[in-house]
Amino acid sequence: MFTLSRETDEDWWEVEALYDLCFAPGRTALSSYRLRDDVPPVPELCLVARDEARRLGGAIRYWPVRVGAAEVLLLGPVAVHPTAQGEGLGAALIQGSLERARGRWSRVLLVGDAPYYARFGFERSGEIEMPPPTNPERVLTLALEPGAWDGIAGLVEKAR
């Protein structure tokens, strides 16, 4: 049994170690990380999942970005410890954080696997362009309120 809670400063290094474990060593070289440089995450949406013994099972973070004048949430990274994979923890982190985002944010963007994220309502967007070398087929969007992505197109940029 895992409990979701807001990530704290004390969680930071352990979450970073989880991301290192789950992703390639060069993860911070990805273009999505350039959008995060010197920009604080959205703290109320950064969650950790811990079991009864307080062991970290998963984590999710969000960052503010812009597409033109529009404020957008960039979901990621999200990771689940290999010993907890296949138990629905990734889905719980995504759903729990999206519920927290509703009413405060209108739109979410991520770079990921469309078949996995489609079950949460994400879909491919040919109108939104991540900085290279991102594969455009992996750029996915979700409207948290009807029409939130209408008329929004262009390059994703760092939050100001």
Results as ranks from 00 to 15, higher is better:
V78T: 04
A91N: 05
A114K: 07
C46Q: 13
E10R: 09
D51A: 00
V65R: 03
D9T: 12
V80N: 10
Y117M: 02
W13G: 14
P77Y: 07
L18G: 01
A59R: 05
V15M: 11
E71H: 10
E7L: 12
V80K: 08
G90F: 12
V108C: 10
L30G: 14
L45P: 02
L73D: 00
R55I: 13
G58N: 10
A84K: 08
E52L: 13
E99Y: 05
R34S: 00
G103I: 12
D37Q: 14
S106A: 12
Y62R: 05
S32F: 04
G96I: 15
G68I: 13
L35P: 05
Y19M: 00
A59W: 00
A29R: 15
G103D: 07
A92L: 06
P25M: 09
A92H: 02
E7W: 03
A69S: 13
A114C: 11
S31A: 14
V108S: 03
D113E: 11
V65N: 01
G96D: 10
L56S: 07
E44K: 08
A24Q: 15
Y116H: 14
L18N: 05
F23K: 05
V42H: 09
Y116M: 07
G90A: 15
A24M: 15
Y117K: 01
D51H: 04
E7A: 14
Y19N: 04
T28S: 11
D51E: 04
A29P: 02
A53P: 06
L75V: 06
L110Y: 04
A92M: 06
V39P: 02
W63Q: 01
Q95P: 08
Y62E: 03
A53C: 15
P77K: 13
P40T: 02
D113H: 15
